[in-house]
Design a protein around this nucleic acid. Structure first.
Length: 489
RNA sequence: GGUCGGAUGGCCGAGAGGCUAGGCACGGGUCUGCAAAACCCUCUACACCGGUUCGAAUCCGGUUCCGACCUCCA
């Protein structure tokens, strides 16, 4: 398959380092808040990549970290640990905060049908590995210690004929020039030899709750080192795919490359894959911008921009209707369109089994499967995959309406098409919230039966009353030749 | 200010020199006691101004607007 590699700025044929095995590292969440919509795109995109590679016969080790050690908050909260800040607000232990939001994150991922990582390492559990890596970089002469903190020496790194900026396309001189302009005044700037240097280890003040002993005193690891240390530990010093959001391209991933090259003598990953952001009114959705919609709010509909809740399947489908490298603009209207479209696919999928088999088939599905394979191979073009699924659904409906015929081969083919791609690679889960539908279903069966009797005796006043009252309660009845079914409106 | 990316029909979104995705909404139909649902059909858009070409939404130049990143929003 072809994948866009940020490192080369080109779409490249994917070939794994070890045949039939693929190692993927994806930057995971910082667990200091409830997951919002912006957190959801990456996991879904890389889940599809993972599923597709598995379908292609790869054995995939998928690592996604949990960042549960502190990182400084910017601006007004300068110098304060993000997790620590949240902990004080909630009167909790920092690790309690981290646990709470880790659980919340994973439960959202489960609902979105994102396969759990093969390994989900926590930064706090890998302090030793991070310290070791920092030590190696120091030994290489590409870092220096100042008053209990350790900084990466970008100049020394470049002098060893490395290109700092190879991933992001940044030019160090421009960075320095630009820094004086718009950049924030950050703590530690005075300790650095050069403004482009970044922290590998930060000395903590006594108030910091999250701190660890190190050769340089009490402190905590820098922003970028955890991913370098943990990816190397679990995937090796050179692995196949490193994924993350475009917002992490610089500085995070650039720094990861620098750290790994300094410590391990070569670049950490063969392919760098970046997904774009979810926007709202054209602006990136981010906690810091305070324009995020929490995933839970989307599920319940409890948000000012929403008039109703949406299922996890709809959210996943919505995300995959756009190509991962483009921005995706969120609105309820767009989500509603996905919701209805998805319902059509599901309805067609359910028709397949009962399709009447004929001797000859006037419909074929092999062209659709070819198109889907081609699209997936072409840098994971999920919108095309979905468009092709709609075409398949259209043909299924035509057969169902008796306007086309299908033989058993084609029927098997379309059945496997939905199973392998719709449910398999795209990983669309069932949207049903399986809460109390059992009881509800039996009650409604009774009402539907009574209404049918009323209809038979032409008591339309009663039958309409049942239908209308149910609608007021949020239950919609749908008549068809086969009988009446219901759904939550 | 610097770097990079983007502007596609009412909305969301593919595509990327001729064959002009897809979904939703709208409209027309089938079905139905009525309605809804469902299904079928339909809807010809590529910011602006020049240029290249037999032919441009797609290439080139310029303009306007928008976004991301610019060293601690993983």
């Amino acid at each position: 398959m072809k994948l866009y590699n940020t490192l080369s700025r080109n779409t490249e044929e994917f070939t794994s380092i070890i045949p039939q095995k693929a190692g993927i590292y994806v930057c995971g969440p910082t667990v200091y808040g409830a997951p919002h919509l912006g957190h959801v795109r990456g996991p879904i995109v890389f889940d599809v990549l993972r599923r597709y590679l598995i379908q292609q016969g790869y054995q995939v080790r998928f690592v996604r970290n949990i960042t549960d050690v502190g990182h400084l908050v910017g601006d007004a909260d300068e110098g304060e640990d993000k997790l620590q800040k949240q902990a004080r607000l909630e009167q909790l232990e920092p690790m309690e905060v981290a646990q709470t939001y880790t659980d919340m994150y994973n439960s959202v991922m489960d609902r979105l049908n994102v396969i759990r990582p093969s390994i989900e390492p926590k930064a706090s559990g890998h302090i030793i590995e991070q310290i070791e890596m920092i030590q190696t970089i120091l030994n290489q002469g590409m870092a220096y210690e100042v008053d209990g903190s350790v900084y990466f020496d970008v100049e020394a790194y470049r002098n060893a004929s490395n290109n700092y900026g190879e991933l992001s396309g940044r030019v160090v001189e421009d960075l320095v020039a630009g820094a004086g302009n718009q950049s924030r005044d950050l703590e530690g700037q005075t300790e650095k030899r050069n403004p482009t240097d970044f922290a590998l280890w930060k000395k903590s003040s006594p108030e910091h709750i999250m701190q660890w002993s190190s050769p340089w005193g009490k402190g905590y690891p820098g922003w970028h080192i955890e991913c370098s240390a943990m990816s190397a530990k679990y995937l090796g010093e050179f692995f196949d795919i490193h994924g993350g959001g475009m917002d992490l391209l610089f500085p995070h991933h650039e720094c990861e490359i620098a750290q790994s090259k300094a410590a391990h003598k070569h670049t950490p990953a063969k392919y760098w894959v970046h997904h774009n952001m979810i926007t709202i009114n054209g602006q990136k959705m981010a906690k810091s911008l305070n324009n995020g919609i929490k995933v839970e709010e989307l599920f319940t509909g409890n948000h000012e921009l929403l008039t109703r809740g949406f299922g996890a399947a709809t959210l996943r489908f919505f995300v995959l209707q756009a190509h991962y490298r483009g921005t995706l603009d969120f609105s309820e209207e767009a989500l509603l369109a996905s919701d209805k479209g998805l319902a059509r696919l599901v309805a067609a999928e359910q028709l397949i089994e009962g399709l009447k088999v004929s001797e000859v088939s006037t419909v074929d599905f092999s062209d659709i499967i070819d198109s889907i394979e081609y699209a997936l191979n072409d840098d994971l073009n999920t919108p095309i995959v979905i468009a092709q699924l709609f075409e398949a659904a259209r043909r299924v409906n035509l057969v169902n309406d008796g306007k086309e015929t299908i033989d058993s081969n084609s029927k098997d083919l379309v059945s496997s098409l939905f199973r392998d791609y719709f449910r398999g690679v795209l990983g669309i889960p069932s949207n049903q919230d399986s809460s109390d539908n059992g009881t509800l279903d039996s009650v409604l069966k009774l009402l539907i039966e009574l209404r049918s009797e009323a209809k038979l005796s032409k008591n339309y006043a009663l039958s309409d009353q049942i239908r209308n009252k149910l609608k007021e309660s949020g239950i919609e009845l749908m008549d068809s030749k086969e009988g009446t079914s219901w759904k939550k409106a």
